[in-house]
């Protein structure tokens, strides 16, 4: 009785962290993340807004890369984690398949890398233009943290335990 309880606890944790990440995701993506002030001009953009701007300017490749790796895949990973931690509703085979998928997605989900990119930009450009982070940064950092916690808490053994 002890072992399944452990699994269940890990699943509870995973679900909690993953749902927290999902709640934070819209704020991270939609709200302005960067506020740039250059020569008196004030400009602010969100991640999604930046991607749309790239599309509008015709940089389809970069736009798609950023869209896929920092929005679609991270979201898919979190959703997959939630699905896996939702034990009762899934068949074992389905779960195994989802797990493998998630493992693959996880490698390509670059949300944390993007955070690093922002940090590099802040250090490099701070002399040229004045810019500060918008409210989305808090959501973004928390979202990355939460999805990491969810991934750490997840115990793959649970998949092969019969509920």
């Amino acid at each position: 009785m002890d072992i399944p309880r452990n699994h269940e606890r890990s699943q509870g944790r995973t679900a909690a962290a993953a749902i927290a990440a999902v709640l934070l995701f819209p704020a991270a993506v939609l709200l302005p993340i960067l506020e740039v002030e250059q020569l008196g001009h004030h400009h602010q953009s969100s991640i999604l807004g930046g991607i749309l701007e790239l599309f509008r300017n015709g940089n389809y490749f970069i736009a798609i890369v950023i869209l896929v790796f920092s929005i679609v895949l991270p979201l898919a990973k979190i959703l997959a984690l939630i699905e896996l931690s939702w034990l009762c509703s899934l068949q074992q085979r389905h779960r195994a398949w989802t797990y493998r998928l998630m493992e693959q997605i996880g490698k390509w989900s670059m949300m944390d890398v993007m955070l690093l990119a922002f940090l590099v930009m802040l250090i490099k450009l701070s002399g040229l233009v004045q810019f500060h982070f918008g409210p989305a940064v808090i959501a973004f950092v928390l979202c990355v943290t939460m999805s990491m916690i969810a991934a750490i808490c997840f115990d793959p053994h649970a998949i092969w335990e019969s509920p």
Binding site: I19, A20, A21, L23, L24, A27, L142, M146
Partner: peptide, 9 residues
Amino acid sequence: LTLVCGVIS
């Protein structure tokens, strides 16, 4: 924590 995150969002 989930609740807190939701509120923060």
